[in-house]
Design a binder for these strands. Structure first.
Lengths: 202, 202
DNA sequence: GTTACAAGTTTCTCCTGTAAACATGGAGGA
DNA sequence: TCCTCCATGTTTACAGGAGAAACTTGTAAC
């Protein structure tokens, strides 16, 4: 893991290396023990080096959150791309992709939606989050146009489906969805109930 | 805030005093800067004193979470008690009470549903959480009996409504429910969409 | 009364974030 | 070519937190 000699004094692209290390840590450390010093250590650099690239811890966190939104958007877009029999099926696929992303990157997902990553502090982060949200809006709009979803205010559908998916994701990654509470397959069950309210009667 | 002299060497009920101080801190500090030393300081004891009553920080956090569940249950029970025209209205009242509780105690609410407060570690915490969840189950069951809610598996309704309410609460306290995304009154709107899927057609 | 124990305090070690001062090496002008 | 600047490293320093260990103090039981 550590090459003692061959590293030149100047790293080359420490900024990117720090981000990569941090993302790798977030992917492994479910439990959110994230320290700048540990990131520096694993990157093989002194604990003060990161401050040349990030004003403070929060700035790095916000950058990680931004990348998280980009990746989530990619994940959801991929999940939606195959031919689907209905917009409803596409919605389910996107929702499950989002929840799957959260399960595979729990710490990153939590970070993305925590107030640690305050979006008012960082226009780029805000933009990334809005862009990801745009996928949902696009899907809802399409569903309304083709008669799949009820013609109520799209913002209401957006609020409901976002809350539902985010709620399921948060409960899942925090291990709250115990079988004794919500049965053995809560995610599809919950999505079905919600979609019954969103969809036009067949 | 601090009486320098009159405090006897032994506090009397330091355990309760620490819990009260911590709860007060959680109510004020939205942003979750919670340190044992600060709790000790504000309680007027040395920073090591809390360790006589809580093995470590986590044990105190779990106790706070437990109390949070008790209070949430009280809040929801109160909100549901007045005469309501329908089970649906009662559901909305309970849901809004839960979200209101989260908004008024954001740090506590976050703690309650974080994996910091690992329920597998503490039977009493688990029991308190289950008891609070029981309110939802009772309401759903009653609604199914009187024909308000659809006769699908109650665990599916539970999963959907819990995820919805928790999702709304989390998004709200993390200031993610921006008007540009979900309109001006996302909570009632989202609950309505969900309930359209849960309720029998009128 | 003496003594034992629960519940305080002090002191210590190791960790973190962050600031300041110092070092290095590559790029651009004399 | 050489000198100098400066971005990007390192070292050192400091404040504050978790928690362990050793010490102190009331009080309650014998």
């Amino acid at each position: 893991m550590s090459e003692p000699k061959d590293r030149p004094y100047h790293h080359g692209d420490l900024r990117r290396a720090l981000i990569d290390t941090a993302l790798a840590m977030l992917a492994v450390d479910q439990n959110w023990a994230f320290t700048l010093r540990e990131v520096a250590r694993r990157t093989g650099v002194s604990h003060a080096a990161p401050y040349k690239h990030f004003r403070d811890r929060e700035v790095l966190l916000r950058e990680l959150a931004r990348i998280g939104f980009v990746r989530l958007e990619e994940t959801m877009t991929e999940a939606m791309s195959p031919a689907m029999p209905s917009t409803r099926a596409q919605f389910v696929a996107a929702a499950q992709a989002c929840i799957g992303f959260a399960c595979q990157n729990p710490a990153l997902y939590r970070l993305m939606f925590s107030s640690d990553a305050d979006k008012t502090m960082d226009p780029q982060l805000h933009e990334a989050a809005m862009s990801t949200f745009g996928i949902l809006l696009g899907l809802l709009d399409k569903g309304q146009r083709n008669g799949s979803f009820r013609p109520v205010a799209v913002s209401a559908l957006a609020a409901a489906s976002w809350a539902q998916v985010h709620g399921l994701a948060m409960l899942e990654i925090n291990k709250q969805l115990l079988e004794e509470k919500v049965g053995s397959s809560p995610v599809p069950a919950a999505l079905d109930v919600l979609l019954d309210g969103m969809c036009c009667t067949d």
